[in-house]
Design a protein around this nucleic acid. Sequence first.
DNA 1: AGTATTTATTTAGCTAGGTAAATAAATGTT
DNA 2: AACATTTATTTACCTAGCTAAATAAATACT
Lengths: 132, 132
Amino acid sequence: MNPIFHALFQKSRYLTNCLNEVLKQHNLYSSQWAILYCLHNHGPMTLTQIWKYLNVEAPSITRAITRLETLGWVLRIDGEDKREKIVALSPYAEEHLPAITKTILAFEEEMVGALTVEEQQQFIILLEKMKG
Amino acid sequence: MNPIFHALFQKSRYLTNCLNEVLKQHNLYSSQWAILYCLHNHGPMTLTQIWKYLNVEAPSITRAITRLETLGWVLRIDGEDKREKIVALSPYAEEHLPAITKTILAFEEEMVGALTVEEQQQFIILLEKMKG
DNA sequence: AGTATTTATTTAGCTAGGTAAATAAATGTT
DNA sequence: AACATTTATTTACCTAGCTAAATAAATACT
């Protein structure tokens, strides 16, 4: 097997584990944070907007949102189109996001700090080149 | 969030999904194939050797081996040290591995073919640079 | 208007990773 | 030899992705 795949999968697992470790102090998992971050940038979104943006399937998002709702991070609001549910950050989330963002920025600096900006760009270009 | 992480996680998911798709014709999942490939290269191994090599936790391997055993791909043999179980490829696996390897090589060529050898090396170097 | 199709979300059930704790055999210590 | 510690595997249970199918609302068609 091409070592690229082994290396890529392994680093991906490793980084999500690290991210989960770091997010423990905020009682969050990395996938939950991805959603909060998404909502923070875009404002309230429908489930469909979220899963399309994050590039995962709908059921994963349904489950994550349900969890985030019971934990008090997000609110589910009925849309005008009664089929869709709009998801928004709760005041609790708004309040805590700055501290979490700080944690994340430190984490990213630690993980990716050894790479120059050019190397980071190069890395993404190479990633994109795998299967067009 | 640094786009590197988003891109990395996403490509990792995408590639495992593609790999699963391609392995369907052999009735295998990517994680199962990783173990078969490992055994093919190293010969019979203990569970501990396998999970250390693949860099995952022991319970994931226990589960996968149990599944591979009931499907007839591997055999579990008691070691001299009665605590450890030695895992070996079954004759069935030995028989089918060449065809599977062929499938995998074609898949890899498709996925990584757009990258030159230098780019592939560069990619791995950049991956390694993330968190030393 | 009534029916068929599409779209948004959810449910059920699968693989695949993780941690924590249980079990059983081997090894070390006194 | 008896007891404590370490090591290998397993079990139980969690997150997190996936597909397939169910449900419910909106839209299109005739």
